[in-house]
Design a protein around this nucleic acid. Sequence first.
DNA 1: TTATATTTTCAATATATTTTGAAAATTCAA
DNA 2: TTGAATTTTCAAAATATATTGAAAATATAA
Lengths: 168, 168
Amino acid sequence: MKLSDARQQFISSWGAFATHWGINRTMAQIHALLLVSPDPLTQDDIMAGLSLSRGNVNMNIRELVDWGLVDRILLPGERKDFFSAEKDIWKVATQIIKERKKRELEPMMKLLAQLEDVEGDKKDKDVKQFTETISGIKNFSKQADRMLDIMVKADENWFVGSLLKFFK
Amino acid sequence: MKLSDARQQFISSWGAFATHWGINRTMAQIHALLLVSPDPLTQDDIMAGLSLSRGNVNMNIRELVDWGLVDRILLPGERKDFFSAEKDIWKVATQIIKERKKRELEPMMKLLAQLEDVEGDKKDKDVKQFTETISGIKNFSKQADRMLDIMVKADENWFVGSLLKFFK
DNA sequence: TTATATTTTCAATATATTTTGAAAATTCAA
DNA sequence: TTGAATTTTCAAAATATATTGAAAATATAA
């Protein structure tokens, strides 16, 4: 397969894949382009490479920088900003875990804690089912949260080595 | 907090939360409603409970059944179909993992395998970066895939007990 | 059968999200 | 300063997704 076709297919599939994860197609495509680009790119490079408008590239690049997946690079003597993606996939994954924990899991856990005690007869089956469901989700989230914390702190070799040996 | 308010808030937050995970709001709200309902509900119950049209409820209920998160129940002597959600959150989680692995992770891994060898000079930096990126993602996915397999096979107590003790 | 209840489908509509592109703001060299 | 290069913003347009509701299909009781 030709490099240009393979790159094209990777970028487009990565974009489609991302939509299943609540990430917009364009943001994922820009990320994919930067992942396969050995050198940093400018906004214009990205616009040309993916046929997108300036505004669109600008907004999605900012989002990627906010997520900590892309760095803005100022090259000496260059007027334009350059952008470069973190290439180490383990680091990419842990960064995404960190952010999603902070943005989604933690707020959800706060809400669950608030919903845990409702007024009313503990023997009423509606009350009972509600509190059981909430506490079930709360406990599960707590475990998941802890596990993710540990994964984020660990390094890749530890994960690949110890954890998977343990699992076998 | 009153039960009715707490239920309302849970349903609405669960719906909002789900949109970050590529799941539509309505499907998640129906799921939430069924999770807190001790008895099975009919389509009409769900329509009334969430103020949704018949068609909408019908489509999203089918989707939930396809995902294996909700069962269609035929009560003897009842004309209407009833629906009930799996209440065990561990089972819900493993079911979601199974389905997403099958629907998303596995197809992506197939694609990555195809993209792994591209024509061209292995010393060309574009070729090099592309193959390194693809193989990095491929290896990471393989590890994740294995870990998820093991989690799905394991039961909850194992997860909560051994795994987390190991992590500490 | 036939009539009625129930479920499913799907074109039309409504809503939400993404994208554009030009104007405004900012940066920076001269 | 000034002016050209670059980045950012954001209202309007385009696109994508979700929702409705009524008609068609299906199931069930009489």
